[in-house]
Amino acid sequence: AQASVVANQLIPINTRLTLVMMRSEVVTPVGIPAEDIPALVSMQVNRAVPLGTTLMPDMVKGYA
């Protein structure tokens, strides 16, 4: 199954992502693919992302 990017902590709005904030997990619905984690580093989220939330393309500025 495809692993997705999941928030490893609460990520406040406009925060630049770092590796420690993200983990890969097989979840439904599928979000951003886990292999994109390196590309997500330093991108900003456009909303607060609670712990355990799957990151979707529309949550990350410049990803989609």
Rank of each mutant, 00 (worst) to 15 (best):
S42N: 09
A3C: 05
T15H: 06
V60Q: 01
M56Y: 08
M22A: 00
D36I: 08
S24L: 03
Y63F: 06
I37E: 03
L17T: 00
A34Y: 07
T28P: 02
K61S: 15
P38Y: 14
L19H: 11
V49D: 02
P29G: 03
M43V: 05
P33C: 03
M56Q: 15
D58S: 13
S4C: 03
V27G: 03
Q44H: 12
V41H: 05
V41Y: 05
L10I: 14
V20F: 08
P38I: 08
R47W: 06
P57R: 10
V45M: 07
A34H: 07
D36S: 15
V20R: 13
R23K: 15
I32D: 01
N46K: 06
V30E: 11
R23S: 06
I13Y: 14
Q9K: 07
N46W: 08
I11W: 01
M22R: 00
V45G: 02
P29Y: 03
T15N: 05
L55K: 00
T53H: 10
A48V: 12
M56F: 11
P33H: 10
I37V: 09
L51A: 12
G52M: 05
G31L: 02
D36T: 12
N14F: 14
M56R: 08
Q9L: 10
P12N: 11
V45I: 07
V5C: 03
I37R: 09
V6D: 01
S24R: 12
V20A: 14
T28N: 13
M56K: 08
P33W: 08
V5P: 00
G62P: 06
G52K: 04
A7C: 04
T54M: 03
V20G: 13
V41F: 05
S24H: 10
M56V: 06
Q9H: 08
N8W: 04
T15I: 05
T54D: 00
V6F: 02
N14G: 14
A64V: 14
E25I: 05
P50A: 11
A7K: 01
M43Q: 06
E25A: 13
N8E: 07
V60D: 01
G31M: 02
A64N: 14
V27Q: 04
L40A: 01
L51H: 14
